[in-house]
Amino acid sequence: MCITSYTLGCMAEDTAPASPKTPKAPITAADVLAWLEETAEAARSGELDAPALIDLLGQLRQASTACANASDWALLAAREAGASLRQIAPVFGKGYVRAPAARLEKLHREVLSSEQFLELMRRRMGSA
């Protein structure tokens, strides 16, 4: 996992109260780090064998895909809500708009809106 200044800022904000209208991500970088430290200790102590770690790897890859899909949805929704690429760019860890612009371009090859993206995810989950 790459920790950027944005991630560190978000981790610091974890202690700040969220406004009632601002949703929070279901998992944070701090949550993952705490879990990783516990799990690494269990692996070092021999509590986790290779098959358990492979199963864990599969779960993490599925969760990673789900987080990437949620991120894509949020990107589409932010643009629909009027956010500019300049406002979005820092979230990508870049000071320029190429990264979110390229991601939006790729997403727009499949869907035109966050609602269409959500429907696509529903269909994919139904066929998985």
Rank of each mutant, 00 (worst) to 15 (best):
E38R: 01
D31S: 07
P17Q: 12
C67W: 14
A102D: 13
A34K: 12
R123M: 14
S113I: 05
A29Q: 06
L53F: 03
M11P: 06
D55Q: 06
P20E: 15
T39I: 03
R123K: 15
F92G: 01
T4A: 09
G126F: 03
L107I: 00
S127E: 13
V32T: 04
T15G: 13
G9H: 06
L75T: 00
M1S: 14
H108L: 01
G9Q: 09
V111E: 00
G46W: 05
L36S: 13
G82D: 09
G9S: 12
R61Q: 15
G126Q: 11
S45Q: 09
G126C: 11
K24Y: 04
T4N: 08
E38N: 07
P23F: 10
R44K: 14
Q87Y: 04
P20R: 15
A77M: 14
P51L: 05
S5A: 04
G82A: 08
L76D: 00
Q62M: 12
G93P: 11
G93C: 15
W73N: 03
A52H: 03
P26R: 15
T39S: 07
S64M: 03
R61W: 12
Y6K: 08
L53W: 02
T22R: 10
L36Y: 12
G95E: 15
S84A: 06
L112C: 09
Q62D: 15
A99E: 13
K94W: 15
L76P: 00
M121P: 04
A81P: 01
K106M: 02
T15P: 07
T28G: 05
R124A: 08
S19R: 15
S113L: 05
D72E: 07
A101D: 12
A66Q: 04
V97N: 09
L60A: 09
F117A: 02
A30G: 06
S5E: 14
